[in-house]
C-alpha cells in the first residue's frame, strides 16, 4: 500500500482527505470482480471533482484526457449542431461512466458534457488508465465488456436514425391517442411512447421536438396538442 493511502472501515480507501468507497467502486462495471489490491490501485489514481449545476465538464472537440464516473448527481452528454440545436445522447447516473471511447481511442471528446445537478465525479487520467490496463488483466476484460455494450447501444441508435422512421411511428401513436372519445382519458409518458415505438426515450424527445418545429404539434405542460392533423397523418403514412 502506498504512503498516501490507507484502508479504513468497511473497506473504504482513504486518499489524503478523500474517501473512495470500495463498495461504490465495485458497483461500477469497469471495476466489477477486481481484487481488493486492484481496487486499491484504482482508488489511488482517482481524481475527485465537484461540479455545480450547469457546469460544463467536457467540450466536444477538445483532446480527451480523462475518463469520468459519476459518483453523485447527473451528467448530460450532448452534441450541438452548427445551428446551435442540442441533442442529448445520454444521461449519466451514479455508477455510470462517460468519455470512455475517445479516451481509449486517443482522440478528441466526441460530445460535450454538462452537470445537470450538483454532484461529484471520479476521473481517471488517460495515462493512468493505460498503466492500469497493462497491469490488471481483469480490468482490461471489463473495459472490453463495457465498450461492447456501448457499441450495441450505438448500433441500435444508428438503426433508429437511419433505417426506421421513429417520427412516423410516433405520429401514429399520437393519432391513436388523440381525442379518444372512449370516456376515460388515456394518458401516456415519453417512456410509454418509446416502448410503443420500439425506440429509446431520447429518440421520442427528439421526434416530438421535430414535430413541434414543423408546426405539427404544440407541446404544453401535460398536453401534446395536434395543430395540423393532416400533416401528422402524412408523417404517419395514414390515409386521410
Amino acid at each position: 500500500m502506498c504512503c498516501l493511502c490507507a484502508t479504513v472501515g468497511r473497506g473504504d480507501i482513504i486518499l489524503g482527505n478523500m474517501v473512495v468507497e470500495a463498495e461504490f467502486l465495485k458497483s461500477i462495471p469497469y471495476f466489477a470482480g477486481l481484487s481488493p489490491v486492484e481496487l486499491d490501485a484504482v482508488a489511488r489514481r482517482i481524481l475527485e471533482r465537484e461540479v455545480k449545476r450547469g457546469e460544463i465538464i467536457l467540450f466536444e472537440g477538445e483532446p480527451a484526457r480523462e475518463l469520468y464516473f459519476v459518483a453523485s448527481g447527473v451528467v448530460k452528454v450532448f452534441k450541438t449542431s452548427p445551428e446551435g440545436k442540442e441533442q442529448i445522447l445520454q444521461l449519466i447516473r451514479p455508477g455510470e461512466s462517460f468519455n470512455d471511447v475517445p479516451v481509449f481511442g486517443g482522440g478528441l471528446n466526441l460530445a460535450s458534457a454538462e452537470a445537470m445537478a450538483p454532484g461529484v465525479l471520479y476521473g481517471i487520467r488517460k495515462s493512468d488508465l493505460e498503466i492500469m490496463l497493462r497491469d490488471h488483466h481483469k480490468l482490461a476484460q471489463n473495459v472490453i465488456q463495457v465498450l461492447s455494450q456501448r457499441i450495441e447501444h450505438l448500433v441500435s441508435l444508428v438503426e433508429d436514425l437511419s433505417f426506421r422512421h421513429v417520427t412516423g411511428r410516433l405520429a401514429r401513436i399520437l393519432l391513436e391517442y388523440a381525442g379518444d372519445k372512449g370516456g376515460e382519458r388515456r394518458l401516456l409518458t415519453q417512456q410509454d411512447m418509446a416502448a410503443m415505438a420500439g425506440t429509446a426515450r431520447e429518440m421520442i424527445g427528439r421526434s416530438l421536438k421535430f414535430l413541434e418545429e414543423e408546426g405539427v404539434v404544440r407541446l404544453e405542460r401535460h398536453r401534446i396538442v395536434i395543430k395540423d392533423k393532416k400533416a401528422l397523418k402524412e408523417i404517419a403514412g395514414v390515409a386521410d
Binding site: A178, R185, L188, T189, Q190, I224, K229
Partner: peptide
C-alpha cells in the same frame, strides 16, 4: 412553476416517476 421538462422522469433509475401527457386535437 413545473414546466413539464420531464427530466425527473428521465433520470429516475427505478421508473418511479411518470410525466403523463394527454394528446388532444386543437
Amino acid at each position: 412553476d413545473c414546466g413539464w421538462c420531464t427530466l425527473c422522469e428521465a433520470v429516475c433509475p427505478t421508473g418511479a416517476i411518470r410525466c403523463l401527457y394527454e394528446v388532444v386535437i386543437e
